[in-house]
Amino acid sequence: MALMDLYSRRRRRNTIVLALSFGATAAGLGWLTLILGSLVWESFRGFSLDVFTHMTPPPGAAGGGLLNPIVGSLIMTTLGVAVGTPIGILAGTYMAEYGRYAHVTKVVRFINDILLSAPSIVIGLFIYEMVVYPMGHFSGFAGGLALAVLVIPVVVRTTEDMLMLVPKELREASAALGTPRAKIIWNVSYRAARAGIVTGILLAVARISGETAPLLFTALNNQFFSLDLNQPMASLPAVIFQFALSPYQDWQRLAWVGAMIITFAVLALSITARALAGSRKPS
């Protein structure tokens, strides 16, 4: 009798936990649909082609768009990737090719992993101290550099992982032909790991294109259209931050539209990256 009790108690506990795990998964998926759903719903009302062709409006004025922040975001993201990617790829190359067994590689990997999840607002403070303060003013250039600091750890990590996956027989075969090390890396390793490295760059772009915190006190914001890297520059996330917290309805509506543009750009990028990486798991 006691045995039957124990048995049914175990079964009951099992059922409860399994039901909870169903519920947890449903809650997780529910949250995702809720967030994406309200994003689409809220931005639908404010969406028009003007968003891509007009400047940010002054407070209280109807209409207007997000042209200057979109262009600003594109410029600073490009700058960030252009500066961060080469450094990241080269560092990853050292870790996987030359210094695979070196002590410094372990240290760099550890530090890089920490930089990977370091709070981005601290990176903003860092660039403020290094670039903005000495220069005496906020600039798009500083914003791009802050983003570059965020790009580097992502690219280092994926480059190293992907180069590690290149079979060593490929390298040995080319070394047996007398190919110098640098040529092996350029013509064999990079070529074999190309899809993976591109994935890493895409993931980095996805990461930085939604970043707000490091831009707040590096690039600041700009109400006007500006291509000058030496001047404060508008960016989508900063404009969303400013507009969403404002009391003006038109601004809030534009903030939602901007939020939708960013989200779908980022999701498209990360899905492309996943597809590129195929069955390999991105880190």
Binding site: G210, T212, P237, A244, A255, A259, I262, V266
Partner: peptide
């Protein structure tokens, strides 16, 4: 993957 500012708004 959703940027943190989206969670904010």
């Amino acid at each position: 993957g959703i940027p943190s500012i989206i969670y904010g708004i």
